[in-house]
């Protein structure tokens, strides 16, 4: 009888610990999803996109309890998005072994990733911001512009859904938003626009 009571008490303790563990606020999220091809007519430019190792394996730590691994997913997304912008495109892992006649060279990097959860504000949504920097250079290494590209995603706080799942969904939406922002605004970057106009004038004269 005593043995049964002891087993019951240990069982209660285990269930209690399990309950407390499920309340833990640590979240480790890995995004490994594929993205659709973009529906766009490519422009006349050709480009080389540099995905360095740091970018391709990027793991963001928006706070001490959360880590978001987006390296693989953001490379997939940007490959799709850039393919809709340029007539000819190459992807490389380093700027060292490049063809000199490569049009423009773009090196994306992540400046910051931020996550906001319902426990931090009055809204009932999970939010993710990814702040990208696109370093755009000419083939001979002259800097055209460092373009700041923010992306945003949010997802509702679904009842009984895990924090990881909610952050994952918000991050996927933020990555898709990055693709949309790129398609929408890339050729509107003033410095890039000016450089293209100069190139066209030079070609005509």
């Amino acid at each position: 009888m005593m043995k049964i009571k002891k087993i019951f008490n240990i069982g209660c303790l285990f269930v209690g610990l399990l309950f407390l563990a499920s309340c833990s606020s640590t979240a480790t999220v890995e995004i490994d999803t594929s993205f659709p091809a973009v529906l766009a007519k490519p422009g006349v430019l050709s480009a080389v996109i540099i995905f360095d190792d740091e970018f391709a394996s990027y793991v963001g730590k928006p706070n001490e309890n959360t880590s978001v691994s987006i390296g693989k997913a953001q490379v997939n997304l940007l490959k799709n998005a850039f393919s809709g912008l340029f007539s000819s495109i190459e992807f490389a892992s380093s700027i060292d072994n490049l063809n000199a006649n490569s049009g423009i060279i773009i090196t994306p990097s992540v400046r910051q990733i931020q996550v906001s959860t319902p426990s931090e504000h009055y809204l009932n949504v999970f939010e993710v911001w990814i702040k990208y920097n696109l370093k755009i250079e000419t083939a001979d290494g002259r800097l055209i512009v460092n373009w700041f590209m923010p992306a945003y995603g949010k997802t509702p706080d679904v009842f009984m859904s895990s924090k990881e799942r909610a952050i994952e969904q918000a991050t996927i939406i933020a990555l898709r938003d990055a693709g949309a922002k790129l398609l929408l605004d890339f050729y509107r970057i003033p410095a890039l626009n000016q450089w293209i106009t100069e190139q066209q004038k030079r070609a005509e004269s």
Binding site: F35, L39, R176
Partner: peptide, 26 residues
Amino acid sequence: AIYPWFEPRTAPKGLPRLKRLMQDPT
């Protein structure tokens, strides 16, 4: 199928924007 033209950032909010979007042959 129509990515990225119906994402939260790009989806047309009114008919004028829809008309402009539908002018794109793709």
